[in-house]
């Protein structure tokens, strides 16, 4: 399972960077979305994938029986998804406003504040 996930992570990063290097601000935001998903999947993969062993402790015991899946990465991903959702919602509104004010979606034409 891990090799497939690892390749998927790599492809997501590559696609994200490709999209971010395009000139359109819409594609820039799509790139950011892919990037945050790539990071989430990376956490999931690098923490180790355990199949069919939910981290449940039997009644009366204080430790789980045998090797179980680690619930912490999933909690991290959940947090990261929520944060990414909020931040990307802002980014979408921002590009919409930027388009309304600047009348362009081309990053090459947004150089007024550069040096």
């Amino acid at each position: 399972m891990e090799p497939i996930l690892a390749i998927a992570v790599g492809l997501l990063y590559a696609a994200a960077i490709y999209m971010m290097l395009r000139r359109s601000i819409v594609k820039l935001v799509i790139g950011l979305m892919l990037l945050s998903n790539a990071a989430n999947l990376l956490i999931f993969t690098s923490a180790g994938v355990t199949r069919g062993a939910p981290p449940l402790i039997a009644e009366g015991a204080s430790l789980p029986d045998g090797i179980v899946a680690d619930p912490l990465p999933q909690a991290l991903i959940l947090t990261a998804i929520v944060i990414a959702f909020g931040v990307l919602a802002f980014a979408v509104v921002l590009i919409h406003r930027a388009y309304a004010i600047l009348h362009t979606d081309n990053l090459d034409q947004m150089k007024d504040t550069d040096t």
Binding site: L28, A39, I43, T45, V87, A91, A98, I101, L102, L107
Partner: peptide
């Protein structure tokens, strides 16, 4: 402000994504 913000937002989100990936690898 709009022009500045597009750059500010993009690069800071990129940095956050790299930070998050690093945390993921470190946890691994």
């Amino acid at each position: 402000q709009m022009e500045g913000a597009v750059k500010y937002v993009t690069l800071n989100l990129l940095s956050s994504a790299i930070f998050l990936s690093a945390v993921g690898l470190l946890y691994g």
